[in-house]
Design a protein around this nucleic acid. Sequence first.
DNA 1: CATGAATGAGAGTTCATTCAT
DNA 2: GATGAATGAACTCTCATTCAT
Lengths: 213, 213, 213, 213
Amino acid sequence: MARRPAGLTANREDILLAAADVLQRRGYAATTMKEIAAAANLTAGTLYHYFANKDALVLAVLEMGLEAGIARVEPIAGDASRPALERLRDMMAAHILGLTEQPAIGAAMVFEIRALLYASDDGEAEDDADVQEFLVRRQEFFGRRDDFERLFRQVVQQAIADGSLRPIDAGLYVKTLLGAQNWVGVWYRPEGRLTGGEIAARMVDLLIEGVRP
Amino acid sequence: MARRPAGLTANREDILLAAADVLQRRGYAATTMKEIAAAANLTAGTLYHYFANKDALVLAVLEMGLEAGIARVEPIAGDASRPALERLRDMMAAHILGLTEQPAIGAAMVFEIRALLYASDDGEAEDDADVQEFLVRRQEFFGRRDDFERLFRQVVQQAIADGSLRPIDAGLYVKTLLGAQNWVGVWYRPEGRLTGGEIAARMVDLLIEGVRP
Amino acid sequence: MARRPAGLTANREDILLAAADVLQRRGYAATTMKEIAAAANLTAGTLYHYFANKDALVLAVLEMGLEAGIARVEPIAGDASRPALERLRDMMAAHILGLTEQPAIGAAMVFEIRALLYASDDGEAEDDADVQEFLVRRQEFFGRRDDFERLFRQVVQQAIADGSLRPIDAGLYVKTLLGAQNWVGVWYRPEGRLTGGEIAARMVDLLIEGVRP
Amino acid sequence: MARRPAGLTANREDILLAAADVLQRRGYAATTMKEIAAAANLTAGTLYHYFANKDALVLAVLEMGLEAGIARVEPIAGDASRPALERLRDMMAAHILGLTEQPAIGAAMVFEIRALLYASDDGEAEDDADVQEFLVRRQEFFGRRDDFERLFRQVVQQAIADGSLRPIDAGLYVKTLLGAQNWVGVWYRPEGRLTGGEIAARMVDLLIEGVRP
DNA sequence: CATGAATGAGAGTTCATTCAT
DNA sequence: GATGAATGAACTCTCATTCAT
């Protein structure tokens, strides 16, 4: 308490949102715990009440972003009552829209994954509990990312199976999709020429219909 | 070149290649000047004979990668004797292939641009000579990146004009292309299921023809 | 104040005193932050809680010394109830005595001012926030040094006006005074032939009365 | 040769003059061998053909300055045909004038002596030949400085003996003189209100006659 | 004599992290 | 929970110095 008036007390999620914002603006390398703390109206020491260390905090940001992405896409993917191609289109649009609504998290997910990828991988076999837990959670995170990718792949395969898509390399197509879409989180600017909705609609069209007359 | 036996002498370009490799493996944040130096068979101090500081070195890596990309694509784009769509296909394939051949640089270009984007932008406007030069070169780098994107956009527009592509949003389509393609530098593994050539051919097909039957 | 037993806790002023001592013994060039920290029973990192960088710390030492000098001299200068010449004599004696009591600071003020004079003036006009603040404070410091000199000059001028001094070049006389006096901080050794009080009394006599029979 | 046209070839003395200039402008701490080399139209490596190391070079600058000072003052001091007080006056004036003519060296002598004072005195008993020679030369330098001071002291004592000065503490008076005079090298600016000759004349008057009416 | 690439020690500085309060 | 002083490891960078050419 002390310093911050009631109502401004940060909780875990506030911290994560603040951290995502700083990460997007400054990048993992340049982001300090003090900056994150300041963005969340806290001091650095206090962050350690919520997160074991910087990597755990950043990983939590990415988990939050990934889970949000899955939450947007999974219900659509699983709605067996709708045609696969229709679901695919909606999944794509929902994902793109999500990235434009939360560009901080989107960009963080593209860029900071790499920073974490080799975090704590300095060759030495560290084995304090925090590191162990981090490694496990990172593994789970990558598993969830695969889940996310699999949702798309399955719907693509269903669409191929029902003939609404031609027989393509589903894995490669999904990587193509995700590359194009994730990149939106990088270049999108709220003040830009197109709204998130317009981007979503047009990009889905381009990626599905191709560009031939 | 005192001290080091002939044949091991590093020059600027050797350093850049070594640096690209380390950057891809470890990321900007985790990459130290000592690691780069070791990869180039030098000591850290010597790097400062060639580059003013870490940022300047990393920027030089990106410049090298970008210029290589432009060098691959520009001659194709400018060959007025060939149909626009054919040129577009070749440009895409050439770019993708380049990324699979030099994944270190490709990944560096995707990820480390961000690290540089705000480098020296810590809110304080430093401007000693090195920083000034860095900012100028960074600006030029972004200009060249725009040039690269423009090459694609112009060919797309030509293809629309000659009717070989339908009337699409050329700017958005190019961002879609580049997102999908650049992402290859991230997920591509030489030991993977598909060769660089196969990835290039299939991805071009998907992005041009779409996925409808 | 974690870690260190009560009683050893250093505060800003303790650090400055320790730093003055090291500076006098080793000189600006040879003094490292680690040495200062060790002298203050701290680690180097902790110094950066109190001072933005080495220059800011050294400047703070000089400020402390200068303010102590002004505090000794100003009340005497301003005591309008006493004859100007008497005040001048007392100011000189007080200043000399101060230098012999705190030779560390005295010598630091003579020597390290120069080191700071061009600090951050490496031709490049850096201006991040710390440097800006430093430059401002350095300017203020020089202003205060002028204030100090002016105190002497004004009393000299008053003494000239009331006829107790002959009509001399007041500015040059004060520079002569201060040169002779500041030099005391350089050559004075506590174990020397004369006490601080003796030096003060004799030097005042020499500088006022001259050396003619 | 190579790089530098004939006629610009630097010799030892040119280097010392260039070094004195850089030292005055930047201070010992900030002065690098490269800067000195550049000021002398050389590269850093070449300096080592002339001087064993940085300290030896700086010491040589000070030696040059001190010998020049002695050369100005000694002939006057030793001219037994003239009254002591007259010689003292001329010695003072000559010294002050010298400092205003070569302020770089004058300031260097005041400030950089300190930097050298503890150079190579890091507690360890270094014993390579260069260090040994440096320590010997430094000792000799301090001896010469004492010689310089002694010249003044002897003339003062002669003047006391012949009654042209009152019976003062000769040692303290000489320190007073030298402090006031050396300080001139610090504050003198060629573009200032007074010429070197005026400063010399007035300061001699002040220091001899005092300031009483 | 002169060069400049190379070294390596060490400097200043940053920052994640801890912990008494 | 929250703080902020303190730590210490690591990093970037500087620079005197060396030496093959």
